[in-house]
Amino acid sequence: MRSILPVLTVVAAILGIWLLAVIPMNMHLVADQGQRDGLVVQPETPAERQEFSGLGLAMRNPDLIPLTYNFKRPRLPSPQQVAGEMYDTIFGKKITSKRSLVYHGWVTLAPTLLGFVIGTGLGILLAVGIVYSRVMDRSVMPWAIVSQTIPILALAPMVIVVLGSMGIQGLFPKSLIAAYLSFFPVVVGMVKGLRSPSGMQLDLLRTYHASNTQGFWSLRLPASLPYLFASLKIGISASLVGTIVAELPTGARAGFGARMLVGDQYGQPLVSWAALFAAALTAAALVGLFSAIERITLKRMGMAAA
């Protein structure tokens, strides 16, 4: 709790920098528009204005500064504009409307969650296989580690289009990407977790004459939970990023990624920015949810949350 004040300070500093940056970023556009509306603008032709930096232009036309915060198609929208647009599109529209961010959010979230569940499930199974089979450990594990250094996310749009051309559309292609991205963090984390019991603990079970299955359920699996939660948090945010990137350049009509691109292409920067922040909030909510589950579970199991 004692870190609330510092966190607020850092957030306020970021907001402050943003607010200051709005002026020079939008100044040229505002000056051009102001001239068209009949205001007096200091260097009079756009060509002359290009010689000045945004800041220099603001110094010469201090009365135009307030306009930069309410410009309709800004290069950098002000925080209150983004907040307003988000409020409008989240609460102001029916959730079935194509302009509602809730609708687009669900289009992105559904494949993320489906893919995440698939990826996590398969990841845990593979991890169990790796821990109990030497061959799998030796042959698959190095590739699982190497695969994390490959920028596979960059190929997400292509995977969508290939599957689309094979006639597979809808939820599944995006889920596949989300599943792939959450798969390897879970494998690597779970292998570490399932191996975390010490030799002493394993020996104790052997003295109880416990079978491999009993050992798995009562020692290895509980011991792996802290590692599993750490991987889940990485996996869910990776899944969300994957789904969004998959939507970005593929001509998707709905979803956060599609909104970011539509706003960019049709000169509605506010739409892009609102989608960007909504995606950020979603990611934060998902990670927060898993942290909460982690805290509760580990507490009930008698382990202190890390």
């Binding site: 996310l153 945010s237 990624g257 970011m260 691109l261 960019d264 892009s272 990611a283 990670v287």
Partner: peptide, 11 residues
């Protein structure tokens, strides 16, 4: 660090 920062690419 957990946010989809890659979404800023178009901007």
């Amino acid at each position: 660090a957990a946010l989809p920062i890659v979404g800023t690419a178009p901007i």
